[in-house]
């Protein structure tokens, strides 16, 4: 049972305040949000920073919910439904992190989208947001294609991401969104 202590130590050294692994639905999203919100409230965090963290959490969680239901339909396998959500907090910032399997054939497009976002400044992201909201219909999964743009805007920093190969057809997509605790 050493892994329990290992996991505990990892959480302490990485300063993780919340980790959730498993199936993601709107119900789990609501539970995670309310847990994280209680944590932010009890630590007396600045309300502006609290709102930004909450905002990024919602988009990150709903991205996984939408995405895992799509993948579930396609693959019907257990691997496609399981994902991880983490929040860390240190003196300088919060990090909202997600990890979920995606089909390898989608990696190229996603990388391109995220690189495109990261190449833009504040004004560029605002233009992109307005452009998408004006010209896009809500997809069947209820997404407006705005989640990453909004996370980048609320974060004010580049979105960090990696892909780890899982098997022949899947990569594990890891995303990290930083939210500074310094007031602007």
């Amino acid at each position: 049972m050493n892994y329990i202590y290992d996991l505990h130590r990892t959480m302490m050294t990485q300063k993780l305040i919340l980790v959730y692994e498993g199936d993601f639905t709107q119900e789990t999203t609501k539970s995670i949000l309310s847990m994280a919100e209680r944590n932010l409230d009890s630590s007396g965090e600045d309300s502006g920073i609290k709102r930004k963290v909450f905002n990024v959490m919602v988009e990150a969680l709903q991205n996984i919910v939408k995405h895992s239901s799509e993948q579930g339909l396609q693959a019907g396998s257990l691997i496609s439904k399981s994902a991880i959500f983490l929040i860390s907090k240190d003196d300088n910032r919060y990090c909202v992190m997600t990890g979920n399997p995606i089909m390898k054939d989608r990696v190229g497009k996603l990388t391109q989208n995220l690189n495109d976002l990261n190449a833009r400044d504040k004004e560029g992201l605002k233009e992109m947001y307005k452009d998408i909201i004006k010209n896009t219909q809500i997809s069947e999964k209820g997404g407006a294609g705005l989640g990453f743009v909004d996370m980048a805007r609320k974060s004010g920093e580049k979105l960090e991401f990696t892909f780890e190969s899982m098997d022949q057809s899947h990569d594990f997509f890891c995303l990290k969104v930083n939210i500074s605790r310094e007031k602007e």
Partner: peptide, 11 residues
Amino acid sequence: YFNTASSKLIL
């Protein structure tokens, strides 16, 4: 607070 999917519908 509203999420991005709501922002489209608010428009």
